[in-house]
Design a protein around this nucleic acid. Structure first.
Lengths: 244, 244
DNA sequence: CGCGGTCTTGCATTCACTGCAATAATGATG
DNA sequence: CATCATTATTGCAGTGAATGCAAGACCGCG
């Protein structure tokens, strides 16, 4: 019996089994996202997804613990990555700054992943807008956010070297940051992706750091809106290629 | 509770029908909360609640749209109340200040209601602690929070006279505030209610207004902890004030 | 008393999700 | 290459939430 568990050695080509697993996982995810984009989250059943991905309905749950997970919990490893980063990155910077940088990157990654998964950016944008109206989806989103919130709080506590049981600061900060981030994405999605996501994120975190003055950069952000753009701004490449 | 009856004119004695409806609503809620406290949210079925409240399972859904709603959506009128307040109260104060005051009051109301509903404060405290560990409950809590978040954002937009579609500020602020509030309640609950809730809330909002400096009042809040108290501090009548 | 509205209830159905056990694919070993 | 242990896939049965529908019970009014 191999005690290696699920961990794979770096540089080793994953076995056939592993590759197949990855493939079906991706197939399920693709099928699901396609259907979600087409019909909306709550009008797609697990059975539909399974059928589209050519697996048994039961198999779906071998890969994802819930219908929501196929949308959110894309990569289980990403959480740990975020955790490590929040704990150890830039030890001299303030907690808020690290949070800002880490979360901004996270957003970038997610957007990039979506962009490479489905073809048409415009499609994603409109679908996100629709998704914001779906109560089921909103609930799932919130639940997922809450989970990250808790993890982030723990990570911050670790970074600051304090006990999360006695010091509320880490959790507070994490919750506030996640709230701001959620609002950012929500706003961006509601706009149909016609706003430069990076600038919005930046302005949002700046506002958080400044205590939400009523004349902060966010307020004028209407001028950030570029309603003439035919290409959703969040997906636009930033001069250079963004392939990581 | 029972301010703002649902649908009937003030001063008029509600008809037998109305009274009966209110009674069963309360009965269901009582039964549900009792069972939740006893077994934990996810180990109580709607059928259980219905049985305990002496109604048919189907009837449960005539009163509450979901199992979660019986916990959260206590009084549907309260939302409108909060909305009105955020929009019109204290026109000279900053948005954040009004939010702080309104939400603090909301918390007070909820705690008071819980206190009068069930008998033993200590029981609630320990149960809340347990509830925080239940993923189902957390998810429901988050979903509910997201909903209020959106409403609060709209209210703030109204207050500030800006278009929520073009100006992200209201939503951002609302989300950040709710995040902080959620963290506050979560922390308080996890502590088993051994912390003065009002002071914690106050410190939290102060931190938000100050942009989360790393040496804010929250950080020292360990000294707020009084682990020798036999009475949960959130329920205690205005003790003394020492923060800020 | 009887009539109209509305509350309650039972029944059937959909859908997410889980546990269990049979089966098939895989890969290491002799 | 044959064998066997591991692990993935699948079907089946069952729980529990939630909804629609169509009786039946009940209240209040004339």
């Amino acid at each position: 019996m191999s005690l290696s568990g699920a961990g794979q050695l770096a540089g080793e080509r994953p076995s056939l089994r592993e590759r197949k697993k990855l493939a079906t996982r991706l197939a399920i995810r693709r099928a699901a996202l396609d259907l979600f984009a087409e019909r909306g989250f709550s009008h797609v059943t697990v059975e539909d997804i399974a059928a589209a991905a050519d697996v048994a309905p039961r198999t779906f749950f071998n890969y994802f613990p819930s219908k929501e997970a196929v949308f959110f919990g894309a990569d289980p490893g990403r959480v740990g990555q975020l955790w490590a980063r929040v704990v150890h990155d830039q030890p001299t910077q303030s907690a808020l700054d690290v949070l800002r940088a880490a979360l901004a990157d996270q957003v970038r990654t997610i957007v990039a992943e979506l962009a490479e998964l489905g073809g048409d950016p415009m499609r994603w944008a409109t679908q996100m807008k629709a998704a914001q109206a779906d109560p089921q989806f909103r609930a799932a989103q919130a639940a997922h956010g809450a989970q990250t919130e808790a993890r982030l709080g723990a990570a911050l506590a670790e970074r600051l070297g304090c006990d999360a049981e006695r010091d509320p600061y880490p959790l507070m900060l994490a919750s506030a940051a996640m709230g701001v981030l959620r609002a950012t994405l929500s706003f961006w999605a509601s706009s149909g992706g016609t706003i430069p996501l990076e600038e919005l994120t930046d302005a949002a975190f700046q506002a958080l750091a400044d205590g939400f003055p009523e004349d902060c950069a966010l307020r004028g952000s209407t001028h950030l809106t570029d309603s003439t753009t035919s290409q959703p701004a969040g997906f636009r490449q930033h001069g250079k290629e963004l392939t990581r």
